[in-house]
């Protein structure tokens, strides 16, 4: 299911403002790729451009190419809704649907798309997704309770379960642990390690230890100054980035000499 992503010469604009410039990288399937960098350098913008979520913001557009297994994401005949069905996303703040129960939240991806699914199939899917998100044992007795009654860490894992329930090929995570305590963070990280067997995972994080712990490849974004577009400074295996980076700026950032 996991797919490879190739990005070439990607520029991202908000209206006339160029937010990200000249990104070239390849994301391997069945791996975790971490994106690090200071705030406002375009990591999240870049992540959102991988499933065309940034188009939700008026005036946002891209130039360049994003190719997933030979399919151009920004081709003129590609429907962004189809793209998002293949590429799931988990957000910084847990955002379960407040009107739905835990069960319905997991089933939301299929229900909202009006896919006809039998009750037993749906039960199986919900159970598999919640087990996949390591949440099943905690919620199996209260599947009909509202999802917003869970703790923050449980809500985030519920959102991950919701995202993997539609069986995407790629999972994008935008600072998924920044609102969580260390124990919940550990739970989500363990989960990511399991999920990478099936999915291609791209994660944006401000926590460099997290990037070092979970990812195979790391991309460092930076910007030259306020009002300048963000750039991909270095893209290398995580081990190399954290021990012997090619670029001085990467080393400065990782060792905490700026930003």
């Amino acid at each position: 299911m996991a797919k490879r992503i190739d990005v070439s010469d990607l520029d991202i604009y908000y209206g006339n403002f160029k937010a990200v410039e000249g990104v070239n990288l390849s994301i391997e399937p069945r791996s975790i790729t971490a994106l690090i960098g200071p705030s406002g350098c375009g990591k999240s913008t870049f992540l959102r451009s991988l499933n065309r979520m940034h188009e939700v913001i008026p005036g946002a557009r891209v130039e360049g190419k994003v190719v997933i297994e030979g399919q151009d994401l920004y081709g003129s005949d590609v429907d962004p809704v189809d793209v998002r069905r293949q590429i799931g996303m988990v957000f910084q703040r847990p955002n379960p649907f407040p009107t739905m129960s835990i069960y319905d939240n997991v089933a939301a991806g299929l229900r909202l798309n009006a896919k006809k699914t039998s009750k037993s199939d749906m039960d199986g899917l919900v159970e598999r997704s919640l087990k996949g998100a390591n949440l099943w044992n905690e919620v199996k007795d209260r599947l009909n309770r509202p999802g917003s009654g869970l703790s923050g860490g449980q809500q985030q894992r519920l959102c991950i379960a919701r995202a993997i329930a539609v069986q995407p090929e790629v999972l994008l995570m935008d600072e998924p642990c920044s609102a969580l305590d260390p124990i919940s963070t550990l739970a989500v990280e363990d989960l990511m390690m399991e999920l990478k067997e099936q999915f291609t995972i791209v994660i944006v994080t401000h926590n460099m230890q997290q990037a070092a712990r979970v990812s195979e490849t790391t991309g460092f974004f930076n910007l030259n100054g306020v009002g300048q577009p963000g750039r991909l400074i270095e893209y290398n295996p995580t081990e190399k980035i954290f021990s012997n980076p090619d670029e001085k700026a990467t080393e400065d950032y990782i060792s905490g000499r700026f930003g």
Partner: peptide, 12 residues
């Protein structure tokens, strides 16, 4: 965030 959550699931 709720709208984005739905969009990210591929909901029109």
């Amino acid at each position: 965030e709720l709208r984005e959550a739905a969009y990210a699931l591929g909901v029109p």
